[in-house]
């Protein structure tokens, strides 16, 4: 039992990192289902519901731009640090000089999508929860622009504005293109075993500007 919603989201930039290019990040051509789920969860989430993304419409042409920034490297070996500083109480902070790297990101610019999704109830819902109630909350939040935190396109510096999609027939930037194959894309992560998260992939094909995710074949 689920209830469907359509959410229009748009913003200046987006970065849906390809897992195979994590260092110099490079975005997928379109939003991944997991990023769409993240946007919906930023608007409303409750342990009693699970968002399922059904369709993603690409409303603006796919365009890229590149930005190179100073970033912090991920890890320093604690053992090396210990040899240098042993227990001395000094002010604590991150090392700028030895820890900064310049990395480029290939971003999407000027994006707009419509996310079509529904939610399913989980067994963690309270006795008083029901789909109708959740649906009301979601619709209210979409209409008023309320959110738990500002949703974003892949990274927090690329905010995603959102509103309820009221178009009957959704037009896309690729209406005239029957099929555009985008290759394998990340579908989402499987969190069922918290010790061992598994990525899931699917074959993304843009059909007339929309990514259909209903019963798509997921490869682990």
């Amino acid at each position: 039992m689920g209830m469907g919603v359509k959410v229009r989201v748009w913003g200046d930039y987006a970065l849906f990192s390809r897992p195979e290019m994590k260092v110099e990040r490079c975005s997928y051509d379109v939003m991944t289902p997991s990023a769409a789920r993240g946007i919906l969860e930023a608007i409303f989430w409750h342990p009693g519901l699970k968002w399922v993304v059904d369709k993603i419409y690409v409303k603006k042409p796919i365009r890229f731009t590149s930005v190179r920034r100073n970033e912090v490297k991920s890890k320093i070996l604690a053992s090396n640090v210990l040899q240098v500083y042993n227990g001395a109480k000094k002010p604590l902070y991150i090392s700028g000089r030895s820890d900064i790297v310049q990395r480029a990101s290939l971003l999407l610019c000027d994006v707009e999508y419509v996310i079509e999704a529904h939610f399913e109830m989980t067994d963690r819902a309270n006795a008083t929860d029901n789909p109708g109630k959740f649906k009301d909350i979601v619709m209210r939040r979409l209409k008023r622009g309320e959110c738990y935190h500002m949703p974003y396109f892949g990274c927090r510096e690329f905010p995603a504005h959102f509103c309820l999609c009221e178009e009957e027939e959704i037009r896309t930037a690729y209406d005239g293109i029957e099929e555009k194959d985008l290759g394998y894309m990340l579908y989402d992560l499987d969190y069922s075993d918290p010790e061992n998260l598994q990525p899931m992939f699917f074959r993304a094909v843009l059909k007339r500007g929309a990514l259909d995710l209903k019963d798509c074949e997921v490869v682990r």
Partner: peptide, 14 residues
């Protein structure tokens, strides 16, 4: 009001 990301000392000290 300390700042975590500064210059000079590696991360793990914090």
């Amino acid at each position: 009001f300390q700042i975590y990301i500064r210059e000079d000392v590696p991360l793990n000290r914090s």
